[in-house]
């Protein structure tokens, strides 16, 4: 399984269960997120903690999904950046596009209404 799905406190958590998230997986990943949004999910966390590399196509898919999600007032938040993935977000300034947390717990808490 490339992606593992679980639900906690009304938040959908998608764990990327591959060390290299690239072109090959990007299409499936994007379709999966778009489907979840279309089915009404408004709080999604993508967990990168198993991931050492994301390529531009994969990131592109993530951005497209986020745009779709913000249009319906939801959010996709990211979790568990390893150093190379964090660098990728920093250097592309995508850390100013996505809200990222270090632990799933912090991210789930951030979705709490208080």
């Amino acid at each position: 399984m490339n992606f593992i799905e679980q639900k906690r406190d009304n938040v959908l958590i998608e764990t990327i269960n591959i060390s290299r998230a690239t072109l090959k997986e990007a299409e499936d990943f994007k379709n999966m997120l778009i489907k979840a949004i279309d089915e009404g999910e408004r709080k999604i966390i993508v967990d990168f903690s198993q991931c050492d590399f994301v390529d531009s196509t994969f990131l592109g898919g993530l951005v497209v999904s986020l745009k779709r999600m913000t249009a319906v007032k939801g959010d996709i938040r990211l979790v568990g950046f390893r150093p190379p993935v964090r660098s990728m977000f920093e250097l592309t300034r995508m850390h100013k596009v996505f809200e990222a947390f270090e632990s799933v717990e912090d991210a789930v808490n951030s979705f709490a209404s208080k």
């Binding site: 531009s56 592109g60 898919g61 951005v63 497209v64 745009k67 250097l91 592309t92 995508m94």
Partner: peptide, 16 residues
């Protein structure tokens, strides 16, 4: 075939 956002991401990484 790609959206503007995808293009922006590809181009950013290409430039870097």
């Amino acid at each position: 075939e790609l959206s503007a956002e995808e293009r922006i991401v590809h181009d950013a990484i290409q430039s870097l």
